Simulated assay, not measured.
Amino acid sequence: MFFRSHCLRVQFELRALTWADLDFENDTIEIIKTEYKRTIQTPKTPSSIRNIHIPRHVMSLLERFKAIQKPKASHAVFSRDVDRISQTHLTKIFNQYIKKTAVKKIRLHDVRHSHACYLINKGMIISTWSQ
């Protein structure tokens, strides 16, 4: 859920991520594609193409996950076997997490808005984050 709230503007970016998009040396993720109707394509706008710095502890978790998964560079980071995780499955996992942690139920899309509110409360100018 960290990626959804902190890094990725939309779920379609999350589902399009491949291991080749992660730079473990520089702790960054390159967003250069999105998924729409189970098809990978370029983002709608040039501003959607970007590099995102990810905290080292999160990248370490991803490195461990990758070591277990042993994927090819072209495989999706968040996948079931070699198939990209579906919207339905992503929502199901999120709802299981909500239930298990007893957090107030919200939609997966709302996580993005919750993080924006958090940043505003911390004094960040939201236009800085959105760019």
Score class of each variant (00 low, 15 high):
Met1Pro: 08
Met1Asn: 11
Ser5Asn: 02
His6Trp: 01
His6Leu: 02
His6Ser: 12
Cys7Glu: 01
Leu8Pro: 08
Phe12Gly: 13
Phe12Cys: 12
Arg15Asn: 06
Arg15Pro: 00
Ala16Gln: 08
Thr18Cys: 14
Ala20Phe: 00
Asp23Glu: 09
Phe24His: 12
Phe24Glu: 06
Glu25Gln: 15
Asn26Gly: 08
Thr28Asn: 05
Thr28Val: 07
Thr28Tyr: 03
Thr28Trp: 02
Ile29Ser: 01
Ile31Ser: 01
Ile32Cys: 12
Ile32Phe: 07
Ile32Trp: 04
Lys33Asp: 00
Lys33Ser: 11
Lys33Leu: 01
Thr34Gly: 02
Glu35Thr: 02
Tyr36Cys: 03
Lys37Tyr: 03
Arg38Trp: 04
Thr39Ala: 06
Ile40Phe: 13
Gln41Pro: 01
Thr42Lys: 14
Pro43Met: 01
Thr45Gln: 10
Thr45Asn: 15
Thr45Met: 05
Pro46Asn: 09
Pro46Glu: 11
Ser47Pro: 00
Ile49Asn: 09
Ile49Arg: 07
Asn51Met: 13
Asn51Cys: 03
Ile52Arg: 04
His53Tyr: 14
Ile54Trp: 02
Arg56Pro: 04
Arg56Asn: 09
Ser60Ile: 12
Ser60Ala: 14
Leu61Met: 10
Glu63Ala: 15
Glu63Leu: 14
Arg64Ile: 03
Phe65Asp: 12
Phe65Ser: 06
Lys66Asn: 08
Lys66Glu: 10
Ala67Leu: 14
Ile68Asn: 08
Gln69Met: 11
Lys70Ser: 11
Lys70Thr: 13
Lys70Met: 10
Pro71His: 09
Ala73Asp: 11
Ser74Cys: 10
Ala76Cys: 07
Ala76Pro: 00
Val77His: 05
Val77Lys: 03
Phe78Trp: 10
Ser79Phe: 02
Arg80Asn: 11
Val82Gln: 13
Val82Asp: 12
Arg84Leu: 07
Arg84Phe: 14
Ile85Trp: 03
Ile85Gln: 10
Ile85Leu: 15
Ser86His: 09
Ser86Trp: 06
Thr88Asn: 14
His89Ala: 05
Leu90Glu: 07
Leu90Ser: 11
Thr91Cys: 05
Lys92Pro: 02
Ile93Arg: 08
Ile93Glu: 03
Phe94Glu: 09
Phe94Ile: 09
Asn95Gln: 13
Asn95Ser: 06
Gln96Ser: 13
Gln96Val: 09
Gln96Lys: 14
Ile98Met: 13
Ile98Pro: 04
Lys99Asp: 15
Lys99Trp: 01
Lys100Cys: 00
Lys100His: 10
Val103Leu: 15
Val103Glu: 15
Lys104His: 12
Lys104Trp: 05
Lys105Cys: 05
Ile106Phe: 04
Ile106Ser: 04
Arg107Val: 03
Leu108Tyr: 12
Leu108Thr: 08
His109Trp: 06
His109Met: 04
Asp110Val: 04
Val111Cys: 15
Arg112Pro: 05
Ser114Val: 01
Ser114Ile: 05
His115Leu: 01
His115Arg: 08
Cys117Leu: 12
Cys117Glu: 10
Leu119Tyr: 08
Ile120Gly: 08
Lys122Arg: 13
Gly123Gln: 03
Met124Ser: 05
Met124Ala: 07
Met124Tyr: 14
Ile126Glu: 04
Ser127Asp: 14
Thr128Pro: 00
Ser130Trp: 12
Gln131Arg: 11
